[in-house]
Design a binder for these strands. Structure first.
Lengths: 332, 332
DNA sequence: CTGTTAGCGCATTCAC
DNA sequence: GTGAATGCGCTAACAG
């Protein structure tokens, strides 16, 4: 153990150097009341020795840490990474750090991250659950505050922050209809993801509102990645009665859809309309510029963080609204 | 403390339940040799009690953890988030978890994350330094393995993984020249970031190789974000002798540049050529499709992780090569 | 192979 | 206001 002794300067070293007790050092470091003279001695000793408190020991003693874990489904999606910003702002205003983990929508990986959050004594967890039945009981059992973001959990055991997906998809679909498109398809995500289902429902609601008939062939549940959109478009265009517009219910998926349309030489918006989700910087420079449903990512992240900060007595659900940004891909 | 007692089941509870010592429980949990019968008793006890090892206590005792921290400059850049994948693969193959932190290229924030890595006893840190003089000595002083990724550190104290930026920028610039563009501009990042400088040098080298004169007015150091590219183009096109092509040295910056060109109604590639960096899914669907320098992000991440795993005696620098992907934005 | 014991670094009682 | 002592939960010596 001599190795560690030489590497790690502890509160004992500081105490010895400052000729005080370790308790006093601890008090100084945590901003408690200490006589000015002793405080000064401690400060110099800390400086001289280049002492850093050992957070692990502190966490063990205090039974809680000061970092939040944000578990998201896909670090490669700009939607999820934008959430980080909002969370970070609130965290740093309140003395927390945030680390991001990537679940790839894989329940096993997600469970591992939850274990890490538990093991490392995270002060809070913001989770975008891979499934409606993701188990957060271990966390809440240990009184680790948990907030769900973007998606719903079946068992409403945690507060949740999300957008009004029904309204968003309905507005987007209505917009296509208003633009004169007659037969709208919908490519959404897997059934396990609540946003995928809700957006599909919003799409249906828009058709129903105009007295249009639903056609199951036009409703595709793919994945929320590029290849999902690519496959989706190819499937839709292979139909006996193909659609003349599509609602692509996710950012990456929309890219894949656009690429498939380009590959097939479809003229957008003249012969085909498309609306995507998750407005990104590049949405403005696609060919043509992409109409999208913009989500208030900063506000979503902030809200989730605030709920973590002040856990409410009652589990609550906060629904923010989206904004349809109309560009060339849906306007002919 | 009764509160904790009821929440936290410890190794003692398991030991009592299984009628063995805590040492035996620990051994079972860590896969050491234990008589089958005792092992079985421990396993059932663990199961029955729903026991989770307290990682904080373990880390304190072992003086090291099992999670890696990846500190990147910008979580909203697809280049950096793609690195995560490579790191994650190697990590999970070796029993590590990875958490991602976002420095925003802010030295203070970066320092805070380094403190967290220290305090939380991270098993390793992969860092994309915000400045060449970022101080990693606290980490290496405590024997925390550190690998630098994407950018160089002035004091070569850590192993580094990056791409051959000179060659990449030179090839991209030569490509524009080959395409018949006569006067090439270069929008790169801030001077503190080594990739920005190296890419600028590569650009100059390409011009020099053809005996072309350098023009300082054509070399812009902006930021590596969208607005940098937007401002850059506007500045270049306001020149008395504006360029007829540009090398945009970063992914987001290229988006901004493209947007500025669109806003000004410039015909690409006819009147103006552009090559970007960091090939992204959406690079294929821009108007026109964007020629980019693709970086081997997965390999970069993997390499960095491997260096973390097996710290070499000597500090080493690993340079991977890029690939120019030619699309419509530079080909007339 | 297994149990006993000590201590990782710190915050927090409890006396003074 | 300050110091001595204790224990957070776990692993690693050391004995047996």
């Amino acid at each position: 153990m001599t190795k560690q002794d030489s590497l790690m300067t502890t509160i004992y070293d500081v105490a010895r150097e400052a000729r005080v007790s370790t308790a006093t050092v601890s008090r100084v470091l945590n901003g408690r009341v200490v006589r000015a003279e002793l405080r000064a001695r401690v400060m110099t000793a800390v400086e001289d020795l280049g002492y850093t408190p050992n957070g692990v020991a502190r966490n063990l003693r205090r039974q809680t840490g000061s970092v939040w874990m944000l578990i998201i489904s896909d670090v490669e999606s700009t939607y999820f990474t934008s959430l980080v910003r909002g969370v970070e702002s609130v965290a740093s205003e309140n003395g927390y750090s945030v680390v991001v983990c990537n679940s790839h929508d894989d329940p096993e990986l997600e469970a591992r991250h939850i274990e890490v959050a538990l093991a490392e004594q995270m002060a809070g967890v913001i989770l975008s659950p891979s499934r409606p039945d993701t188990d957060v009981s271990r966390l809440s059992g240990r009184r680790v505050p948990v907030v769900t973001i973007d998606r719903r959990l079946a068992a409403q055991a945690t507060s949740t922050v999300l957008v009004d997906n029904h309204a968003a998809a309905e507005a987007a679909t209505s917009h296509l209809l208003d633009g004169g498109y007659k037969r709208i398809g919908c490519i959404t995500g897997p059934r396990q993801i609540s946003t995928a289902v809700e957006r599909l429902e919003g799409y249906r609601r828009a058709l129903a509102a105009r007295g249009l008939e639903l056609d199951a062939a036009l409703e595709l549940m793919e994945n929320y990645r590029e290849d999902g959109g690519y496959r989706g478009i190819n499937a839709l265009l292979a139909l006996p009665e193909p659609p003349d517009a599509v609602l692509a219910c996710n950012g990456l998926l929309a890219v894949g859809a656009l690429r498939a349309l380009h590959d097939r030489g479809v003229a957008i918006p003249r012969d085909f309309g498309i609306v995507g989700f998750d407005d990104s910087p590049w949405s403005q420079v696609t060919n043509p510029p992409l109409t999208t449903v913009a989500q208030p990512t900063d506000a979503l992240g902030r809200k989730a963080a605030e709920l973590l900060l002040a856990p409410e007595k009652l589990v609550s659900t906060h629904m923010l609204s989206t904004e349809l940004i109309v560009r060339g891909s849906s306007r002919r």
